[in-house]
């Protein structure tokens, strides 16, 4: 028996909007520790990892580990029927081949049940070891989304370089080139507006902008984003989900021949 009750249902709505473009079908894994997902895009160039810890739910009942295969587009269609202030409960009976999303309005005067058939998805699970990154940039998520969007109108790939000057985003295309430098800036009145750069050593990597742009669909989840870079690893773009967990995107770099 699975019954997960999330008072801030809007978080789940935003999570689906954040991942449904990158991944079509995926398994949601439920265990005592939380509700998670790991899935790659069709080209295996990018990977998304979601964690919503059990403590973040008002009620979390998961009698035994469960993996539920779903089409994320269909889940998104159902969750769009929930109000942004609704309480969302995910329910599934042991051995049943369906999952139910229940939406309760804040004053409990409207209760909706959406039931969806589960799918058999044989997805791979990659082992992602914790790593020390050569540079970690924390910046306003809207700022990062704007940079990725602007640069993709000039070129297809972006070189992200971190030096003691700051973090530089560079691209080039048929019409010309673009360079955006963001310097560390801690003297802001609100901490979420700060740009903080932790650099162990300078690093520079090249990435396809279309994946970074699909990652920025997670912007509504968090005011800030962290970008972790190391010369021999995929970049990790992380949006924390307040008090509950995170959506983490991994993107393999372009490898110079």
């Amino acid at each position: 028996m699975l019954e997960l009750r999330l008072v801030q249902g809007s978080l789940l709505k935003k999570v689906l909007e954040a991942i449904k473009e990158l991944v079509t079908d995926a398994n949601f894994d439920c265990s005592a520790t939380g509700f998670s997902l790991q899935a790659m895009d069709s080209s295996h160039v990018a990977l998304v990892a979601l964690l919503l810890r059990s403590e973040g739910f008002e009620h979390y009942r998961c009698d035994r580990n469960l993996s539920m295969g779903m089409n994320l587009g269909n889940v998104s269609k159902m969750l769009r029927c929930a109000g942004s202030d609704d309480i969302i409960t995910i329910k599934a009976d042991d051995g049943s081949d369906t999952v139910t999303f229940m939406f309760e309005s804040p004053n409990q005067d409207k209760i909706a049940d959406f039931e969806m058939k589960l799918m058999d998805i044989d997805s791979e699970h990659l082992g992602i070891p914790d790593a020390e990154y050569q540079a970690i940039v924390r910046m306003p998520s809207g700022e990062f989304a704007r940079i990725c969007k602007d640069l993709s109108s000039i070129g297809d790939t972006v070189i992200i370089s971190v030096t003691k000057e700051g973090v530089k985003f560079s691209t080039a295309g048929d019409i010309g080139t673009a360079n955006i430098v963001c310097r560390q800036n801690k003297t802001v009145d609100k901490p979420e507006e700060a740009t903080v750069i932790e650099m162990q050593e300078p690093v520079s990597l090249t990435f396809a902008l279309r994946y970074l742009n699909s990652f920025t669909k997670a912007t509504p989840l968090s005011e800030t984003v962290s970008i972790s870079l190391s010369s021999d690893l995929p970049v990790v773009v992380e949006y924390k989900i307040a008090d509950m967990g995170y959506v983490r995107y991994y993107l393999a770099p372009k490898i110079e021949e």
Binding site: M40, G127, I128, K254
Partner: peptide, 14 residues
């Protein structure tokens, strides 16, 4: 040109 890496260049199936 440059080749696009994939997750398999960096992480193992577990």
């Amino acid at each position: 040109g440059s080749l696009q890496g994939t997750m398999y260049n960096f992480y193992e199936n577990c």
